[in-house]
């Protein structure tokens, strides 16, 4: 499979990048680490005339501790750089746990945080070669008008399969988005759309430039549990992030988020209300697990049965809550 031909655009600054995006608009795909885009281009899921390579934009790289405001991470920062940053490990342990599970060490050296946040949704009926998709019949997400996962439906169930976003949601992260029209900042929780095709509230002329971890979330205990068959490489088949702010043995604040079981990563609604003020035990953890399982709507978009994956959301949430509390 050859990479389809395209023209490579290599800006040096954010300003140049957004100008090029504005110029080519819908004809351009952005590449950072390339671990998500390039395989898909070989499979002819994308055949853009232009590819915008952000790697020359050095201002997008790095982790900065801004006194009193938290931590800023440039979108181009590699996942391994985050994994090895002591401040992340110390203050934002849920992100540390999640980022270490992404793919494999080699892929984490290439893959970026911005790429992981903006990851395309995945489905076994979609992430296939052109010939495979031709043989099967094209689907809603690419070139077709039907869904193989939910026949008859007009909704795309391709699953969001990033590991870091549930951790970032637990931390109340915000992201900075830049376009030629200016800069906007939005909570990550408002960035995703629960639709396998729409995916993100991100216009074609916009770039995610930074991720902000608020100071208020520093020091929260965190735990990330990932379902996969192999010990490495695999995308999550289900993932659960839990972050608890503890006051002695009581929960002062809490967030629970899940990934890979819906078209978007989701915060589990009202998990905080259930947890705050209590000292989590098995029973409480079990109840949170059931709430998370109800939030999960896995379908046959990946390996393992949806039933099993939902069940694991329950078990993993329970374990993550217990792990954080202890």
């Amino acid at each position: 499979m050859s990479l389809p031909s395209f023209q490579l655009l290599r800006p040096k600054t954010i300003a140049e990048a957004v100008a090029l995006l504005a110029e080519h608009d819908r004809e351009v795909k952005i590449v950072a680490g390339g671990t998500d885009l390039l395989p898909s281009m070989k499979q002819k899921l994308f055949t853009p005339p232009y590819v915008l390579d952000l790697r020359g934009v050095s201002e997008l790289r790095g982790i900065r501790d801004v006194a009193g405001q938290g931590v800023e991470i440039g979108a181009l920062t590699t996942l391994s750089a985050i994994e090895h940053a002591s401040i992340i490990r110390k203050d934002y342990s849920v992100l540390y746990e999640a980022v270490r599970t992404v793919a494999s060490p080699v892929l984490r050296n290439m893959g970026t945080l911005g790429g992981n946040v903006c990851l395309d949704t995945r489905c076994l009926w979609y992430n296939q070669s052109l010939l495979w998709r031709k043989s099967c019949g094209f689907c809603l997400k690419k070139d077709g008008d039907l869904c193989h996962v939910a026949p008859g439906g007009k909704f795309c169930w391709a699953a969001f399969s990033g590991d870091t976003p549930p951790a970032l949601l637990c931390l109340g992260a915000e992201i900075e988005i830049v376009s030629s029209h200016g800069v906007r900042r939005t909570p990550l929780s408002e960035f995703y759309v629960n639709d396998g095709i729409v995916r993100l509230r991100l216009a074609p002329n916009e770039i995610v430039t930074r991720v902000f971890l608020p100071a208020s979330a520093a020091g929260w205990r965190g735990s990330y549990h990932k379902l996969r068959i192999r010990g490495s490489i695999d995308y999550p088949l289900a993932g659960v992030a839990v972050a608890l702010k503890m006051n002695q043995d009581r929960v002062a604040d809490a967030r629970v988020a899940i990934t890979a079981v819906n078209p978007a990563p989701h915060l589990v609604k009202d998990a905080d209300a259930q947890l705050i003020g209590l000292a989590p035990d098995e029973g409480l953890a079990e109840r949170i697990g059931e709430m998370a399982a109800r939030t999960a709507k896995p379908l046959t978009t990946s390996a393992l049965t949806p039933e099993y994956r939902r069940e694991m959301v329950r078990v993993f949430t329970k374990r993550a809550v217990v792990a954080c509390a202890n």
Binding site: Q128, I229, R230, G231, A303
Partner: peptide, 28 residues
């Protein structure tokens, strides 16, 4: 024993690649 399996749907191989056909990694 634990991971590898070619999965078929009406004669179509669902996992024709090293990502979805899972040979063990060194981790496990």
């Amino acid at each position: 024993a634990l991971e590898e399996e070619m999965v078929w749907k009406d004669g179509l191989l669902m996992n024709p690649g090293m990502l979805e056909y899972r040979s063990p990694s060194s981790a496990e």
